[in-house]
Design a protein around this nucleic acid. Sequence first.
RNA 1: GGGCCCGUAGCCUAGCCAGGAUAGGGCGCCGGCCUUCUAAGCCGGAGGUCCGGGGUUCAAAUCCCCGCGGGCCCGCCA
Length: 663
Amino acid sequence: MPEPRATWRVYNLTPYRVLGSSVQQALKRLGVDIEERIIEYIVAESPRPDLGDYGVPIARFAKKYGVEIEALVKSIEEELRTYPHIAGVKRVGGYLNILLDASEVSRQLFRAVQTDNDVFGHLRVDKPLRIVVEHTSANPVHPLHIGHARNAALGDTLARMLRERGHIVQTRFYVDDMGRQVAVLVYGAKLLGDLSIPRGVKPDHWLGTLYALVHTLADIEELKKELDKLKQENKLDEYREKLRELDKLVAAASKLREKEPELFDKLADAIRGRNPDEEISEIMRSYEFRRDEEVVKITRAIVEACLRGFRETLERLGIGFDKWDWESDLVWSSLVGKILEEAKKTPYATMHKGALALNLQPLLRDPVIRSALGVPEDYEVPPLILQRSDGTTLYTTRDIAYSIKKFREFNADKVYNVIAAEQKLPQLQVRLALIALGYRREGLNMHHYAYEMVNLPGRKMSGRRGEYVTLDELIEQAIARARAEVEKRSPNLPPEEKQKIAEAVGIAAIRYTLVSVSAPKPMTFNIEEALNFEQNSAPYILYTHARAANILAKAKQRGLEINLEEIDYNAANENPLRRRLVLQLLNYPYVFVKAADELKPEIIVNYLNRLADTFNKWYTSGDSAINEPDPGKRGYKLALVQAVKTVTANALRILGIKPLEKM
RNA sequence: GGGCCCGUAGCCUAGCCAGGAUAGGGCGCCGGCCUUCUAAGCCGGAGGUCCGGGGUUCAAAUCCCCGCGGGCCCGCCA
């Protein structure tokens, strides 16, 4: 990736940097030394243009740091004089506002956009880090649904942001083939005596149905046994409660039966009178210890098939992985065994009710660890069990081995795990365990990028009961919706082109929606809303980009080239919308850096939306670029359009959305 | 019982960590605009106890305390 050199200059002209450094310098001269970043945070856009463009509440600084306000203002004004693009300074109330010279800003901006082009704005760090991003890592037992989609969209966007920021990034998918969930599926396959996946069905979809069937039928079978026992013991209250549970299960089961009556009946017959819980546990054991080659074969085949489905879905979203890591490989390669040996030798090792465990509490006495892991002072962390009494390991144990592998294999400085917020405790335990085992650097540099669950309106999703909207369905719906729109507005395009646009738009809409809500917020996924292609959506942004592209294409057709030397930069100040647009574009590098460093894709989303807003207002205001008779002004407008197009395209790419030239 | 996260108009959301200018957007609703670069657009309008109550402050959506509501976690599950 080329270095965006010209972007640096623009970056240093953004109001945040300018005011940040000026105020900092001014305060320093008055004997107060504070970080520039603190001031940058406080710089604000002015609410009205007549007050200036950006400002800082200087009264606050004067008070807080005990400096004379007049002296401070004078000092700041002096600092600001060194910038050629500052046209004036204005005091309003407790604020000191700056007025930017849009023509000078434009001059710098257009040049940088032209030289840096597709890396414009993407300022790179001085010292790149080697970063692993593990994300999605869905259980290979059912198709990906919207919840996984949030994980995938966030993870992929994170990886893209970090790469553009100059880091060396590797993405990894953890294939959890040793969990109970896969064993449930294997159990089902064994009951059926046949694991061939019917043709014409996507493997993950078929497996998802099988999984829900087996799980639900197994639960019913187990519950029946419990009921018998309670009845015998004459525990009527509990009995009635369990009976209600059974009703719910039976209701879920009958829904499943509607989908696959034959399969359902076959499984129901096969499972009757058996001990599914026990048998599933036995499958897990025999897979972990490779006791039964048949189980190994079936398991691997099932998981492979499911992953084929995942890959197909993710590929449509433009999401791929550098590495796929199988949990079983960690165990069979003795990496996990090594962890157990190491654990036993540490002073943290303990026996918890007869199982090998780590007591992690003492580590929390170290304030460095507490602050690095974000643990409050008197937090109590439960002991972490590493090995069951039957000798099998637990998910978290294997995750410790996996964490080390992630660092080792890529020689990583940092690891980000994009994992649901409900896994906060196990994630914390893994990090503490790493430290306990002597992998202090790894423990302190592994981060849990937590996101909240996605729910469907009115109900919760449940993989075990087969209640979910698959990502594939959602993608299809989005594309169909986009297709109808293309059909309506561009009936004359060739069908392949229509389809291409529809696919790009539909998929973009989904990705945009998923990263537009900040990760710690729970999200209700409203399909109607996600497929609303109006303002504040990917289609809106793509449409804006296509509009800009269209203007430039038309200009080219008419032989109108953009020559930065022949532009009349005074045109910048003639029209308030042009001015606003330039000032927004000026902020792009700053916005990018903030989003990438804070790992907040929604910052990019918000920026894009506001930029598109301003562009569309300008576009419809009648200030046409290609019909402009004055060559200097026309040049200016075209360069402005070009800048909008470039910035929009660059920002979209970070979100994993391909910009469109035509819609 | 303990811990973590979330609470901003009918719905969704930004701002909160780093307190300051009449709380930004969007959907939906009402009313307008296609002979000028793409109407997936634009213009105008109605709609707010920033969950509640205290406190700190010249100043609180933002900080602190006490509550309320929702979600999640505290397993020899993952």
